[in-house]
Amino acid sequence: MPATLLYAFANKLMIAYQYLTTPGLYKRDGGQLYMDTRLCQEGTQKLSVYHGSVIITPTIIPETRNSGELIGVQFTMDSMSAGTMSHTEVREFCEILTHTDIQTYALILATFEKLDNMDKKLDAIMAMQNQILQLLGQEHIEKAKLKDTSTGLDWKFV
C-alpha cells in the first residue's frame, strides 16, 4: 500500500470498526453467531490501490482456542482473502495508524539510508588507505635493504 494512502486506509478501517457495533448486525441462534448479510454489505469499505482495491468487510472469525467466534473484519484484495483481524486488533491498529506521522518516518528512513551510504563510502576510503599504507611500508623495507651496514655507505634513491 502506498504511504500516501495510509490515512485513507486508516479512515476506512475506522469506519468498518465503528460499523461492528451496529445493532442487528450479529444474531446468535442456538449458540452459533450469524451475521446479517445486508447490513454486512452496508458496512463494507473499499479503497482503490494501484490496479486493484482493498475491501474491508465486517465478519465473524472462528476462534479455535475457545471453540467460539470473534467479530472482526476481513481484508480482501483482488477477490482473494488477505487476512482477518479481530475487533480488538482493529481498534489497536487504528490507534497506531492515527498516531503515525508518515512524513517523519519517511524523513528518518531517508536519513538512515544516507548514513548507510556514507558508512559504506567511509569503509571504502579506509580500505584504500590501508592499501596505501601497506605499499608505503613495503617501499620503506626495500629502502632499508639498500643500506650497506658493513661499509657504512648509505644508498639513496634519486
Rank of each mutant, 00 (worst) to 15 (best):
M1R: 04
M1I: 15
P2E: 15
A3Y: 10
T4I: 07
L5W: 02
N11W: 11
L13F: 05
M14I: 01
M14V: 03
I15W: 07
I15M: 08
A16Y: 02
T22M: 10
P23N: 10
D29T: 14
D29Q: 11
G30F: 10
G31Q: 05
Q32M: 13
D36T: 03
T37G: 01
R38L: 13
L39Q: 08
C40T: 06
Q41S: 08
E42H: 09
G43Y: 00
L47E: 04
L47Y: 02
S48D: 15
V49S: 06
H51E: 12
H51Q: 11
H51P: 00
G52C: 12
G52H: 10
G52R: 05
S53I: 05
V54K: 02
I55A: 04
I56Q: 01
I56Y: 01
T57M: 09
T59F: 06
T59K: 02
I60W: 03
I60D: 04
I60E: 02
P62W: 03
P62K: 05
E63L: 12
R65Q: 05
R65C: 00
N66W: 12
S67Y: 15
I71R: 10
G72K: 03
G72Q: 04
V73D: 03
V73W: 02
V73S: 02
T76M: 13
T76Y: 01
S79Y: 09
M80Y: 11
M80I: 10
S81I: 13
S81D: 11
A82I: 09
G83H: 07
T84C: 09
M85Y: 03
S86T: 14
H87V: 11
E89R: 04
V90F: 07
V90D: 00
R91E: 12
R91C: 07
R91H: 15
E92D: 15
F93P: 00
C94P: 02
E95K: 15
I96N: 00
L97F: 10
L97Y: 03
T98S: 14
T100D: 09
T100E: 10
T100Y: 15
Q103E: 15
Y105R: 02
Y105T: 01
Y105M: 12
L109M: 06
A110N: 14
A110I: 05
T111V: 08
T111Q: 13
T111F: 12
F112M: 13
E113G: 05
K114T: 11
L115K: 04
D116T: 06
D116L: 07
N117W: 00
N117K: 13
N117E: 12
D119C: 14
K120R: 13
K121L: 12
K121D: 08
L122A: 07
D123T: 10
D123Q: 15
A124K: 07
A124M: 07
A124R: 05
I125T: 06
I125Q: 09
Q131S: 14
L133S: 09
Q134H: 08
L136K: 10
Q138Y: 07
E139M: 10
H140V: 11
H140D: 11
I141L: 14
I141A: 14
E142Q: 15
A144D: 11
K145W: 09
K147L: 08
K147R: 01
K147Q: 08
D148R: 03
D148I: 03
T149N: 06
S150L: 15
G152H: 07
G152P: 04
G152Y: 05
F157Q: 11
F157T: 07
F157H: 05
V158C: 12
V158Q: 09
